[in-house]
C-alpha cells in the first residue's frame, strides 16, 4: 500500500515516512529469510481447510450412518397410528373360543339394555 500525502498532516511526516520506508529496504538477508519462512508457514495453514474439505463427504456419510443406526430401533408413530384399533391377546382368545357368537343373540342385547337401565 502506498499512502497518499495527507494535506492535513505536517510536511515533515512525509520525510518521516520516507525514512521508515528506507529502513525496510536495508533489512539483512537472515531477517528476510525468516520473514519468508514465516509467510510460507502461514500460507501452509491457509491450505489446510481445503484439504480437510476432502474428508467432508466421508464424514457426512459416517454421520448419516450413525444417525440411521441410532434411530432405527425406535420408529416414531403418528397420533393417527396410535389411535388405530389393535388386536389385544385376550380378544384373540375370545375369537378363538368362538364366543363372538354372542353378538348374534338378541337376548344378550336385551339383557345389556336392562342391566344398563337398572344400574344407570
Amino acid at each position: 500500500m502506498k499512502p497518499t500525502p495527507d494535506p492535513n498532516q505536517p510536511n515533515w511526516t512525509e520525510q518521516a515516512r520516507s525514512l521508515l520506508e528506507a529502513s525496510t529496504q536495508s533489512l539483512d538477508a537472515a531477517t528476510l529469510s525468516r520473514l519468508n519462512r514465516a509467510r510460507q508457514r502461514a500460507l501452509a495453514v491457509a491450505q489446510r481447510p481445503a484439504n480437510a474439505l476432502r474428508w467432508a463427504p466421508g464424514l457426512a456419510a459416517a454421520a448419516l450412518l450413525l444417525a440411521v443406526l441410532f434411530w432405527w430401533p425406535y420408529p416414531k408413530h403418528s397420533p393417527a397410528e396410535a389411535r388405530a384399533p389393535t388386536l389385544l391377546p385376550e380378544d384373540a382368545e375370545l375369537l378363538a373360543e368362538g364366543e363372538f357368537e354372542m353378538t348374534d343373540d338378541p337376548e344378550f342385547y336385551a339383557w345389556l339394555d336392562a342391566d344398563g337401565e337398572h344400574n344407570g
Binding site: P7, P10, N11, W12, T13, Q15, A16, L19
Partner: peptide
C-alpha cells in the same frame, strides 16, 4: 496542524 511548517526532521 501547520502544514507549512518544515518540521524537526
Amino acid at each position: 496542524v501547520d502544514a507549512a511548517e518544515t518540521g524537526p526532521l
